[in-house]
Amino acid sequence: MTTASAPTPTLAMPRIHPGRILIWTALFIGGVIMVTPLIFMFSTSLKTAGQVYDLRMIPASPTLDNYVKVLSDGRFLRWFLNSTFIALAVTLSNVFFDSLVGYTLAKFRFRGRYFVFLAILSTLMIPTEMLVIPWYLMSAEFGWINTYWGIMFPGMMTAFGTFLMKQFFETVPDDFIEAARIDGLNEFTIWWRIAMPLVTPALSALAIFTFLGNWTAFFWPLIVTTSQELYTLPIGLSSFAVEQAIQWEMIMTGASLATLPTLLVFLLLQRYIVRGVMLAGLKG
């Protein structure tokens, strides 16, 4: 995905231009600026309270004490597990339902099909903020406040995912499905066994997008969670930071803990994540 698909013929030139070096250097400096906050965050998390105001990039005597302090009460681990569980569950639900609906809308002709499609698509126009008050009242009514389900239910299906999957299922040839039908497979099996494997790139794009979105979600979890045990990582970090009353080394440690897991995953899976985001963005 890096050099193989380089698009313009200019790249075929093997010689190194001075202009090219200039561009590269500029891009590099820009890139370093982009990650500077991350570097400072991490480096400060290794400093003691007394060294915080000495703004050296590399701490004079790095220490993991802050991490020990922050991790000792187990809250961050809990929030991490909450976030992981919630993001995973919502992602699975989206992968299942969005593709099921997308497939149904793409591959069956039935009365009401267009209406259902438009209805689902129209929800793209409704901002979450407009729904949170009714959701909140609904959650209070049914006892969903401060439960995992309460955090998850609004995102179990999305119009975006449905639309994305519909686009992809439309590229699956009807012959495949027809052949399976003649073989006597039932419709569910056809979708699950025949159609789904043909759209795995789209599925992984949807999964990556949904996971990232839910992993970093802030507004709704902030409203619906009422106890520390149920916080997700972003909410936990935010409340932790306030609680630390501007002790920057502790706040940076918390921020590092909230950020590092995703950074590591990204560095391991960069190819897939970038490709997934590209796919989702282009088709969506």
């Binding site: 982009m34 990232l212 940076m252 909230a258 950074l263």
Partner: peptide, 22 residues
């Protein structure tokens, strides 16, 4: 280079907001 530019996108906004605040 691409990773340098992309990294901020996958960070948690609430965490990075505190870094910027500092």
């Amino acid at each position: 280079l691409r990773a340098l530019y992309f990294l901020p996108f996958i960070t948690t906004a609430s965490a990075m907001a505190w870094v910027w605040r500092w």
